[in-house]
Amino acid sequence: MTKGDVWAGLILAGLAIFIIQQALVLDYFSEYGLGPGFLPLWLGIVIFTLSLALIGIRILGRPEAFENEGGTSAGTGRALATWGGLMLAIALLNVLGFITSFVLLTFLLVLVMDRRSPSTSMVVAVGGALGFYLVFSAILGVPLPQGPWGF
């Protein structure tokens, strides 16, 4: 996974620059000794150095941890599509409430990702949502995000 590691190194190096930039705004020393900027500054420097080391190791071809998790691009696509569905459901939480968002998420995942029939998908989605409502809302009293329908 040479490319992946190089990308990871670049992203982490970018994060390190951000950490350093913000740390420079904070006090390095304070009246109590070291200030709030001390640790972040050094963290940023170390992360930056290690990121470059990671990129260097990959480009120079050191045999350290060279293998990847395996899997296919189709598999990665399935995982990312599931994540996209989750993020969509999170975006809808505020608008539709938990129960409706969960029904939509489950229905789509089971129907599209698992290629089950619409009726099976709906049974899993509605049954699951009902279970959540009973356990968390009715029994445990956890206030779930509500939609315009009151649930």
Binding site: L93, V124, A125, P143, P145
Partner: peptide, 19 residues
């Protein structure tokens, strides 16, 4: 069946974090 399990895990994750 796994398709009945993983949406529940995602749901519990959302509720757990929100709570």
């Amino acid at each position: 069946p796994y398709f009945a399990l993983y949406p529940m895990v995602l749901g519990i994750s959302i509720v757990g974090v929100y709570s």
